[in-house]
Nucleic acid binder design. Structure first.
Lengths: 149, 149
DNA sequence: TCTCATATTTGTAATCGTTATAATATTAAA
DNA sequence: TTTAATATTATAACGATTACAAATATGAGA
């Protein structure tokens, strides 16, 4: 996984459309308007949205956009390995433009998905296995939802 | 999570139907034949089967069994917290009668799901969160499928 | 044992997220 | 400009799961 965000001058600033366009080009993805906007949403919001959430948000800007385009584009981004899929919840694929190794926490009350920092992970008995993907998914109550529980 | 297996005299021996019957009773689950056989399959095979795999296997013994019964029973077992759901693969819920903390590895070639020992896990920034569930899911190639790759 | 209430099982239809398909529109190349 | 390749769109199809309602089995009390 490439932590491409770190190559940027100001990693925490929102990506401009120009920057996204260049980036997609570099990755061999033709930067159509729909693709730009979908990547923009993922990389600048970082809320781990579902395909349908992306569709509903982008519909305001691009009334003609179709669900299929969103799904197609997300699959393209996955194939090109510039985003990852988050399967913390059954029957609800989410998408994440952060590729560096981190975990996810889903609040069972408010439904929000948070990034979790993994300081150390030691696994046993993996000799002979070739690990290509790692996912750490937590569920529970987030700080705001714990309040006065 | 109760590691009930460890309470047994010989933890590695297969569970008898009598023993399963007693166990379900203790958990407030009436031990019908279908429930006995579904739990028997989960606890003695430990292959992390899907609902459909359980259905297809049990159909040989119980030709009248329906998919709905398998789904209902698995949901009951989940509610009573005597099994856990494994969502390592999208659109493919698997079920596991081992409740002690461990990870899962799915081989992308043969499809088998293995248990992985977690020696240490240290997370950061979880202050204020109440963690109720943890899942560690890996994908890659298992030793047999790596051979002479 | 019989009866009744309750729990369980079953088959079918419905649901929901996602994918397949095919027509249309857009872009790039000749 | 013409043509070919690519991208987008709407619709239909798919597959895993759930909802529903009827049928069956079970257990407690008379």
């Amino acid at each position: 996984m490439r932590a491409y965000a770190k190559l940027r001058e100001k990693p925490d600033m929102p990506w401009s459309l120009d920057e996204i366009s260049q980036f997609l080009d570099q990755q061999g993805i033709r930067p159509s308007f729909q693709r730009l906007k979908i990547f923009e949403y993922l990389v600048n919001e970082r809320t781990h949205p579902t395909a349908d959430e992306i569709y509903e948000v982008l519909r305001k800007d691009i009334p003609s956009i179709s669900r299929t385009t969103v799904y197609n584009t997300l699959r393209l981004f996955l194939d090109k390995k510039i985003i990852q899929m988050v399967n913390i919840e059954k029957n609800e694929a989410r998408y994440d433009a952060t590729l560096s190794w981190h975990g996810h926490f889903k609040c069972l009350k408010c439904g929000q998905v948070y990034d979790i920092e993994i300081e150390e992970l030691k696994l046993g008995g993996l000799a002979g296995y070739q690990v290509l993907e790692k996912h750490l998914d937590l569920k529970g109550l987030c700080p705001s939802c714990c309040q006065g529980k």
